[in-house]
Design a protein around this nucleic acid. Structure first.
Lengths: 171, 171
DNA sequence: TTCGATATATATCTATATGATATATCGGTA
DNA sequence: TACCGATATATCATATAGATATATATCGAA
């Protein structure tokens, strides 16, 4: 969490709200953040001296903009450079259902798989749109990779489930 | 959480400890459970009447075996039949690092990708072993699919990252 | 021009989950 | 018999999502 926020703040100073939007768009497929974690983490990062906040006021609105500090940049680079076992967590509820599908009639399973494939297609479509819009705004090839990964991942999921559908229908 | 535990208890009555082991082996790739969630959930399920517990005692050891009830079976089937948007969460820390890798020297990025591909291969190897051992114990084709999915997923991840490595090395 | 919908912005609460740790028993082996 | 690893239950601290509350700003349509 902490390092991802530092990373985004290294691109430009932002408010918690802007941070949430940016996280959702750019790495949202495999890393998401809620306000319930963003705001407390920002306060903690400021205590540590990794970011500093500036309270601007547009009219009557309170607006706290956070910027990364020199110390924060160093921490970010240390995290990027460190080759630890990276966290990889996949929670795929559909697969849990599939595991127990032996209890259910084949027709129902077929419909579940078909619907899932459609949903995967829709998600993939959204990412393809995002990719087109990203082309202009990205300062860096590396910032395109997660979106490209997401598109390829959904393609893989669609393919795997299409093959599953074929197998289930065949008996 | 709740429904996954009900599912496993529909296969056979079990203790919380056995449940944890079984979850880790069978759906562990995309759904995991800790004791801190298993025991409280079992107690809640019993309050709801979806499972009933029996306190057996082997010698001096306390051993609480949980079995699914008729009501629990109905709840499980209702969950399996219901076509809702299923939870899909991927937390892929490596991809977050990649997003910010523009800050780092190419050599370091190449090493990160290489190491990651090796780790993916190791994980895939474990699943292939598991698949071989599963052949005997599974009562059902559906119980094989999650493991097969895991193997295919790691293959996809290896392929995607190998292609990424090629691209990064080329400039 | 005013009304309502949507976007911006911060903050906090509840429920739940993880990971670690504590405690204790059991079976096998050295 | 002493010890290790597996079995078994339980709980703590910490983290997080998701929902909700509150308020302001913007913009288009009636």
């Amino acid at each position: 969490m902490k390092y991802a926020l530092l990373g985004f703040l290294s691109l430009q100073p932002m408010t918690g709200y802007e941070l949430k939007k940016m996280v959702s768009i750019s790495t949202g497929q495999f890393y998401s953040a809620s306000y319930g974690s963003i705001y407390p983490t920002l306060r903690k990062l400021e205590q540590e001296g990794a970011v500093k906040s500036e309270e601007g006021n547009e009219g009557n609105r309170v607006k706290i903009t956070y910027a990364i500090t020199e110390k924060g940049e160093q921490e970010l680079d240390a995290w990027l450079a460190q080759q630890g076992e990276e966290d990889f967590v996949l929670r795929y509820e559909y697969m849990t259902k599939l595991f127990f599908s032996g209890r259910r009639p084949t027709g129902e399973i077929v419909r579940m798989i078909q619907k899932h494939i459609e949903e995967l297609g829709a998600e993939r479509g959204k990412l393809i749109e995002l990719h087109a819009s990203l082309d202009e705004s990205c300062s860096d090839v590396y910032q395109m990779y997660p979106c490209e990964f997401g598109i390829a991942l959904y393609q893989f999921l669609q393919d795997w489930n299409s093959e599953l559908l074929r197998r289930v229908e065949q008996n």
